[in-house]
Design a protein around this nucleic acid. Sequence first.
DNA 1: CGCTGCGATGTCAGAAGGTGTCATCGCGTA
DNA 2: TACGCGATGACACCTTCTGACATCGCAGCG
Lengths: 180, 180
Amino acid sequence: MSRWEPGALGRLEKAALELFVEDGYEQTTVAEIAARAGVTERTFFRYFTDKREVLFGGGHELEEHVVGLVTGAPVGTAPFDAIASAFEATARDFFADRQSYARQRQAIINSSPDLQERELLKLAALTAALARALAGRGVGEPTASLAAESGVTVFKTSFPRWVSEGNEKDLSQIIKETFA
Amino acid sequence: MSRWEPGALGRLEKAALELFVEDGYEQTTVAEIAARAGVTERTFFRYFTDKREVLFGGGHELEEHVVGLVTGAPVGTAPFDAIASAFEATARDFFADRQSYARQRQAIINSSPDLQERELLKLAALTAALARALAGRGVGEPTASLAAESGVTVFKTSFPRWVSEGNEKDLSQIIKETFA
DNA sequence: CGCTGCGATGTCAGAAGGTGTCATCGCGTA
DNA sequence: TACGCGATGACACCTTCTGACATCGCAGCG
């Protein structure tokens, strides 16, 4: 038996999500999150730079995934097509069975301007990373940036639709439609 | 002689800009800004909801201006054209003689993720307002949102170029080129 | 002329977010 | 056994931001 329960990071993310749902983002204090996770406030800030960041941990993996797909697209694929299919595939891989989680998370984000700011920043980072990936494939400016912007815009507008539709429609399906 | 010097808001904005340039955004405290402006910290927060907001006061007027131009565009103007010329005109009216101010301000924003977040939020608000304006002219979705997004994207990419070009090239000129 | 209400500011106390620094102690390794 | 590492705790501290109440010139009004 080690000195502390392992998995502090996961416990913090879980506790935060629960409390945000129960009491709202702004009403929840970091101290409460830490207490429910069984750690100190200080430990929270060792895992997350910010109170907000606890909701955006997955963003990094998502970025790597999409960028990887774009980088690895068949030689000669048109920039816009590479972006489009990367997003479609990522939608399948990442969000297929997580609609209810995504819905909760999005509801929280929509409730707080602070969180919306952070999300915009993450999307801007994603845009920049995609533009770099395209540049690495020899795509010049401003084509690379414009294709990246377009892709992220499509994603950004498709996501709310997928989340809100009560039905079981596929995210990748919606994305495919919107790209047209 | 009134009880206090008038123009507290202007003094705060001026003091903030100076201190941000001198010491950097993060190193400057609200207390310092207030002291230089000759008021209390509390007064700062009566004028600005946020430490960040002191740099974004003009955003509201800019939004009203662009939206007004779009709303007042000749009947029958294509959505995209309405947006494009609104931005060109606004560039002339708002930024013509303020390049050095804009450069300072942008340098500060670029130095802090906090400020970049806020700027992205303001641009998102502008996008939404433009989409509403187009909708008010009878433009349907998704055309309205896409035209608004495109316009803001062009603005967002043109601005850094205008700011960084050492030369005297016109913002509205750059914008016109990018729209093509 | 004196009263009165308003508006802009000050004063104070305090919650919450965030950081630096040092202490603790189980565990793997020499 | 001794040692050092890594994750966490403990604590003090600063900054941002908010609520509640006090102050006092000024304008209007009787």
